[in-house]
C-alpha cells in the first residue's frame, strides 16, 4: 500500500470528520443553541444596560465561543473512542501528526462557522456596530479559533482517556488560552468600535505568535499523547 503524505492524510481525515459532522447535524445544532443561549445569558447577567453590553460585545462573543469550544473539542475524540476508532486510525497507518492537523483544523472550521453565525445575532442582541471591515472580523475570528483549537486538540486527546474528562478539559484549557482570549477579545473590540490608536496589529501579532507556538508544539507532542 502506498503511504500517503502528511498533508494528504490530514486532508482525508478532515474530510472524514466533516462528513461525519454533516451526517449528524444534531450535534451542530446543539452546539449552536448552546452558544446562543450563552450569549443571551450574558445580557441577563449584566442587565439591560445597552451601552455596557455594546462595549463588552467582543468579550461575550469570545466567552460563548470558548464555552462552545469545550463541547466541540470534547466531542472530537469521543467519536474516535467508540469502537476503538483511534486504534484503527493508528494502525491504518495514519501519521498521528496528520491526525492532529486534521482534528485541530476541523475544530477551527467548526468554531469559525459558529462565530460567523453568532456574529449577526451578537450585533442584534448587543446593538454592536462594525467599525472596520468584515474581513478584519473574519481574520480575528479565524486566528482566535485556531488558537483555541490547537492546544484544545492536544488536551482533548488526553482528557478523553482520563477519569472526569468533562472537568479535566476546561481545567487544563482555560488557564492556557488566557492570552489568546485576551488578544482575541481586544482585537474584536477594536474591530467593532474602531481602532484610533492602531493597536489591532499588535494584538493580531500576539494571536499569530500564540498560534505558531501551539500549532508547532501540538504537531511535535501529539504523537506522544496518542502512542500506545
Amino acid at each position: 500500500m502506498r503511504r500517503r503524505g502528511l498533508l494528504s492524510t490530514a486532508w482525508v481525515l478532515l474530510r472524514k470528520d466533516l462528513l461525519l459532522e454533516w451526517r449528524t447535524r444534531a450535534r451542530l445544532n446543539a452546539l449552536l443553541v448552546f452558544a446562543l443561549s450563552t450569549l443571551l445569558l450574558f445580557s441577563f447577567a449584566v442587565g439591560p444596560d445597552t451601552r455596557l453590553l455594546e462595549r463588552n460585545a467582543g468579550g461575550y462573543l469570545w466567552l460563548a465561543l470558548l464555552f462552545a469550544s469545550v463541547l466541540s473539542l470534547g466531542e472530537s475524540f469521543r467519536v474516535e473512542a467508540e469502537n476503538e476508532c483511534l486504534d484503527g486510525l493508528r494502525l491504518a497507518p495514519a501519521d498521528p501528526r496528520a491526525l492532529f492537523l486534521a482534528k485541530a483544523a476541523g475544530n477551527t472550521l467548526l468554531l469559525v462557522g459558529l462565530g460567523t453565525v453568532l456574529f449577526p445575532i451578537m450585533v442584534a442582541l448587543y446593538s454592536a456596530k462594525l467599525a472596520m471591515g468584515m474581513g478584519d472580523f473574519l481574520l480575528v475570528l479565524t486566528l482566535g479559533c485556531m488558537s483555541l483549537s490547537a492546544p484544545g486538540t492536544v488536551y482533548s486527546a488526553i482528557a478523553n482517556h482520563a477519569r472526569a474528562r468533562d472537568v479535566l478539559l476546561p481545567l487544563l484549557l482555560f488557564p492556557l488560552v488566557v492570552p489568546a482570549l485576551l488578544a482575541a477579545t481586544k482585537a474584536t473590540s477594536l474591530v467593532l468600535q474602531g481602532d484610533p490608536m492602531n493597536q489591532l496589529g499588535s494584538w493580531l501579532g500576539l494571536l499569530a505568535g500564540f498560534n505558531l507556538m501551539y500549532w508547532g508544539l501540538g504537531f511535535l507532542l501529539f504523537p506522544r499523547v496518542v502512542e500506545d
Binding site: P151, V154, Y155, I158, H161, A162, R163, A164, R165, L168, L172, P175, L176, V178, P179, L182, A183, L206, G209, F210, M213, Y214, L217, L221, R224, V225, E227
Partner: peptide, 29 residues
C-alpha cells in the same frame, strides 16, 4: 485523574511543557 502510571507520565510531561511555554505569553499579553 489518570490511573495508568505510564500514560500519566507521558501525558503530564506534555501538559507540563505546554503549560510552561504559556507563562511568558501570558505575561506579555
Amino acid at each position: 485523574f489518570v490511573e495508568d502510571p505510564e500514560k500519566r507520565a507521558v501525558w503530564s510531561a506534555v501538559v507540563g511543557i505546554i503549560a510552561y511555554v504559556d507563562i511568558p505569553i501570558v505575561w506579555f499579553s
